[in-house]
């Protein structure tokens, strides 16, 4: 397989008549990386995956997947990627095994014994082996989702597009999917493009991610980088037995303090600083020296959810940030 980047888009755009679903999207995904595509409903995530999976042509821009141009080598791209589509996209009148067998053959698994072994391996992994002879129409939503993921992996692709992989799954199954993605990316260097609005999945799995809204890239980077985009600095939260005015004044006089908020009833003091690593020991020492009785100290960072919401909201009113 060609070397990195596994996926690269440059100014990718898709228009449906007058509606622009994706606009000028640029990002790179390295081999073995789990890259998140985050955004609210209708942001353009699924359209992006469809373009990269060569299901629809881009209106503008270019992209390569596994080293192949999506416009010129669509067939090669399809051979090299596994796709979990937005809908499970399963043939409900066929059994689980028949579905798997059809897609195994469609992806070129010609050797029957190898094909059977692969199907068994995947169906056993997803706890579906005992239901292999049942028609998919009898499956629950979660079972269908698991079968659809198994189908995406049938030809052991190096690049896998997962559109909302844990949607409809119970917590245990969702965890097994996350574990699988983690294992395949870390041990077997599979590349994942994970399209989700479940930030829990993104936080746990994605090394880097892009937030898109209304078809445009809002921000791209690691979770840390995205957090830093919405809030420069940190908040040190100190719980005191009693909030004393002298303590507050002492802290305010320290260098590198941006702001101090207090809540007398709960005994909490929130101190905004630029860099908590260098400032926290000095702040705690000053509080103690000023007579404050410290019960606990926490460094607060904006969660990915907060960062995501702020970035999306911020973008609503202005241009692209990427």
């Amino acid at each position: 397989m060609p070397s990195t980047p596994a996926i690269e888009t440059i100014g990718l755009a898709k228009r449906f008549n007058s509606f622009t679903a994706v606009n000028d999207l640029t990002f790179k995904v390295s081999e073995g990386e789990v890259f998140g595509l985050l955004g609210p409903n209708g942001a353009g995530k699924t359209t992006t995956i469809r373009m990269l999976a060569c299901l629809i042509p881009p209106s503008n821009g270019s992209a390569s997947v596994a080293g192949y141009d999506i416009a010129k080598d669509a067939s090669k791209v399809r051979e090299n990627v596994g796709v979990l589509t937005e809908n499970p996209s399963l043939y409900e009148r066929l059994t689980a095994y028949e579905n798997m067998e059809f897609f195994a053959q469609a992806y070129g698994l010609a050797d029957q014994s190898k094909r059977n072994a692969r199907i068994r391996e995947l169906l056993e992994f997803f706890d579906l082996w005992s239901r292999r002879s049942d028609r998919v129409v009898t499956f629950s939503k979660g079972m269908k989702q698991k079968l659809a993921i198994a189908r995406a992996l049938i030809h052991n692709p190096h690049i896998i597009f997962l559109d909302e992989p844990t949607a409809g799954l119970d917590p245990e199954s969702a965890k097994s999917i996350r574990d699988l993605v983690e294992r395949l990316s870390q041990q077997e260097k599979h590349t994942f493009l994970l399209c989700t609005h479940r930030l829990e999945d993104a936080e746990r799995l994605c090394r880097r991610m892009i937030i898109i809204n209304k078809g445009r890239g809002v921000a791209v980077g690691t979770i840390e980088e995205l957090r830093n985009r919405v809030e420069r600095g940190h908040v040190i939260e100190i719980a005191l037995k009693e909030v004393d005015r002298k303590v507050v004044e002492t802290v305010k006089r320290l260098n590198h303090i941006l702001n101090v908020d207090t809540n007398c009833s709960s005994g909490l003091m929130r101190i905004s600083v630029e860099d908590h690593d260098s400032v926290t020991p000095e702040v705690v020492r000053s509080v103690v020296n000023a007579g404050g009785q410290v019960l606990s100290v926490n460094v607060l960072r904006p969660s990915l959810e907060e960062a995501y919401l702020k970035l999306v909201k911020k973008e609503e009113g202005r241009g692209q940030l990427v």
Binding site: S75, E79, V83, T85, L90, F103, Y107, G108
Partner: peptide, 14 residues
Amino acid sequence: ERKTIEALLATPIS
């Protein structure tokens, strides 16, 4: 209609 087309079109079948 049955929403099965996407997975079919994603295969390398020409």
